[in-house]
Design a binder for these strands. Structure first.
Length: 639
RNA sequence: GCUGCCGUAGCUCAGUUGGUAGAGCAUACCCUUGGUAAGGGUAAGGUCGAUGGUUCGAUUCCAUUCGGCAGCACCA
């Protein structure tokens, strides 16, 4: 006798052990059809799992959201592997997990896949779905499984099995003629995958994620429970492409990049205006929060980088400067901290000087790998909104709290409300003793807790000199971006010999907190462009208002309006071209100017303007003075 | 850096099975003075990413190289 408890608390009793699928069938044929898997103790299990003792189960259907999608995507990955093995039997299979929005599978084969292969594989996948092949789980002996895959020539699979801890069961899943090592769970049949999937792209990927290993062929796909969801996802991708900052940068004439300066940005007037607006926000906040601003040299002798430890770890990605005249040992600075320590070291510091918050809009250069470059989001020449807080150990907590308040305010100003925090602890390659790291990690975690932050652990991802908090914001279309950071550093002050005189007259080491709110201007501006899809709020927009005439007899008045706007501090332009108003409205709408003031004969006569908002179809007739006052108010950046 | 794909006018793209190229938009000029997302006409605009090779002849074929895109690896 087994008693099966369902989520609603009801209990069903059966005389003999029973499978989840049988329970579902017993409840109703509709549920049996919809059933995908079971959840037992919070773990997903196969629908065919045999229940031989009293158990509480939930039957998972497509309505179960992420869990169900993960299952589906994992199955679609297997389905793809089966199709690939049928079409290209010489291909070796490796792993194929579900990921956000879809799945991938890594294959090994002598000749790479081409984009033309994708539709063929997709078609075969549909055929396998129609075949309705049952997916069954088998428990194998480890040695037998290794021998089995070796026998098939599937060396990667054999290697994976060998690496599974001895106490774990080896489960293989069989569908048709395809058999794969897998932890499961899986759907009960290939038919349950349905047809709302699509293979998206080909890419290379290193075996086990290590660049020293062979490169495999990865195929990415997306999978959903119904076609509507698939279409919605594909539509979302199209929308994301439309707001790509590289495209908008060109269309809105914000910046450009070219071969002669790979990894750098040519900022055009409009883009630079955006930069200056953002910089202004940060500068005002720094001033209001007790920071001092400095500027440090671009070229710094290699000795300083050797002393700081950066040379040892990063010399490969530092630019070196030579003069042609003599042997120079200068590096173009890849970061600002050692320079800030030099300013700190001028004169004797007292505990009364701490915390000393030293900020710089620091222009840095790093030779990033070519493949890492991406528009203005990842460049070789960038400007950080950097600052280093020199403080005592006792001040770490209060400084962390103050910084968290600061970045939240700034992010909110730019329209980002959703921010998560990651805590990255000691990496393998690091400076400083274990005791120092214990202290730094402990202090940072405690401070994060005191600041009311919930953190998720990012193991081994800290900087070489200390642990970090990383601030991840979510943009308007749900993508996550890591921007801000706060890092505790006990190492750099030691290496570069920074000290202060404590209350008792003794000499002490300060702690350095490295912190940035935006990260780099280039990256943050790229994110802003994509977040707003180029439709900036008035205070951020490079051009805030365009005055457009309907007839040339209104030209003089239009210039008067322009003058009034400029006098009120607005970034305004005038369009007197010999074009119809329809044309002008379209042109400036496409340029994403937030406000248009249209003037014709009527407006010129009574000194009014017809105000039109980007994307709207309404017009508002206002007296010139009122319009200017209203826009001046709207265009104020956050205080 | 690695794997794959791509590089034709300012932009989006067509084309040449090897005989040095075409459209739309944008630009300039002319006509049009028009009331809220493209009025009409004319013109100008390209050593087809670069270098080398094969060829009577290369934008087209081959090699190398630079740059871009997607992913991987990297990210002080």
């Amino acid at each position: 006798m087994v008693a099966i408890t369902l989520p609603d608390g009801s209990v069903r009793r059966y005389p003999n052990p029973i499978t989840g699928l049988e329970v579902a069938t017993d409840i109703g044929p509709g549920l049996a059809r919809a059933a995908l898997a079971l959840r037992i103790d919070g773990t997903m299990r196969d629908l065919t799992t045999r229940l031989d003792q009293d158990t509480a189960i939930a039957i998972v259907t497509a309505k179960d959201g992420d869990d169900a999608l993960e299952l589906l995507r994992h199955d679609t990955a297997h389905l793809m592997a089966e199709a690939v093995k049928e079409l290209y039997p010489e291909t070796l299979v490796t792993i194929g997990p579900s990921i956000e929005n879809g799945f991938y599978y890594d294959f090994c084969r002598p000749t790479p896949f081409t984009p033309a292969d994708l539709p063929l594989i997709e078609e075969r996948m549909r055929q396998i779905v129609e075949r309705d092949e049952p997916i069954t789980c088998e428990i194998w002996d480890r040695d037998a499984a290794v021998a089995f895959f070796q026998g098939l020539g599937e060396t990667y699979k054999a290697e994976i099995i060998s690496a599974i801890p001895a106490e774990q069961k080896i489960t293989l899943y069989r569908q048709g003629n395809f058999i794969d090592l897998c932890r499961g769970p899986h759907l009960s049949s290939t038919a349950k995958v349905g047809k709302a999937f699509k293979l998206m792209k080909l890419a290379g990927a290193y075996w086990r994620g290590d660049s020293r290993n062979a490169m495999l062929q990865r195929i990415y796909g997306t999978a959903w429970f119904d076609k509507k969801d698939l279409d919605a996802y594909l539509h979302m991708l199209e929308e994301a492409e439309k707001r790509d900052h590289r495209r908008l940068g060109r269309e809105m004439n914000l910046f450009h990049q070219q071969e002669e300066a790979v990894g750098s940005v040519f900022w055009h007037p409009a883009g630079w205006q955006l930069w200056r607006t953002v910089e202004g926000v940060i500068r005002r906040r720094l001033d209001a929060n007790g920071y001092v601003e400095v500027k440090t040299p671009q070229l710094v002798d290699r000795r300083l980088w050797e002393a700081s430890g950066h040379w040892e770890k990063f010399s490969q990605s530092m630019f070196l400067a030579t003069s042609g005249e003599e042997e120079l040992q200068l590096a173009i600075k890849p970061m600002n901290c050692p320079c800030h320590v030099q300013i700190y070291r001028q004169g004797i510091k007292s505990y009364r000087d701490l915390p000393l918050r030293m900020a710089e809009f620091g222009s840095c250069h790093r030779y990033e790998p070519s493949g890492a470059l991406h528009g203005i989001m990842r460049v070789r020449a960038f400007t950080q909104d950097d600052a280093h807080i020199f403080c005592t150990e006792d001040q770490i907590t209060s400084e962390t709290i103050a910084f968290c308040e600061l970045f939240k305010t700034v992010y909110r100003d730019f329209g980002f409300d959703n921010v998560r925090v990651k805590f990255s602890d000691r990496p393998e390659k690091r400076a400083g003793s274990d005791e120092t790291w214990d202290k730094a990690e402990g202090a940072l975690l405690e401070a994060a807790k005191a600041a009311g932050l919930e953190t998720t652990l990012n193991p081994g991802e800290g900087a070489f000199y200390g642990p970090k908090l990383e601030f991840v914001l979510r943009d308007a279309i749900g993508r996550d971006w890591q921007c801000g950071t706060l890092q505790v550093d006990f190492v750099m002050p030691e290496r570069l010999d920074a000290s202060y005189i404590a209350e008792d007259g003794g000499k002490r080491r300060p702690v350095m907190l490295h912190r940035a709110i935006l990260g780099s201007f280039e990256r943050f501006l790229g994110i802003l462009i994509e977040h707003f899809a180029g439709r900036f709020p008035v205070w951020l927009a490079p051009v805030q208002v365009v005055v457009a005439t309907i007839v040339s007899s209104a030209d003089d008045y239009a210039l008067e309006v322009l003058g009034a706007l400029k006098a009120a501090g607005l970034r305004a332009e005038v369009d007197l071209r010999n074009e119809k108003i329809n044309y002008k409205v379209r042109a400036h709408s496409e340029a994403k100017v937030p406000v248009m003031l249209v003037v014709g004969k009527r407006e010129a006569e009574i000194k009014s303007v017809a105000m039109r908002r980007l994307g709207g179809s309404e017009q508002e007739i206002l007296a010139l003075d009122d319009a200017v006052a209203k826009l001046a108010e709207e265009s104020k950046p956050p205080a």
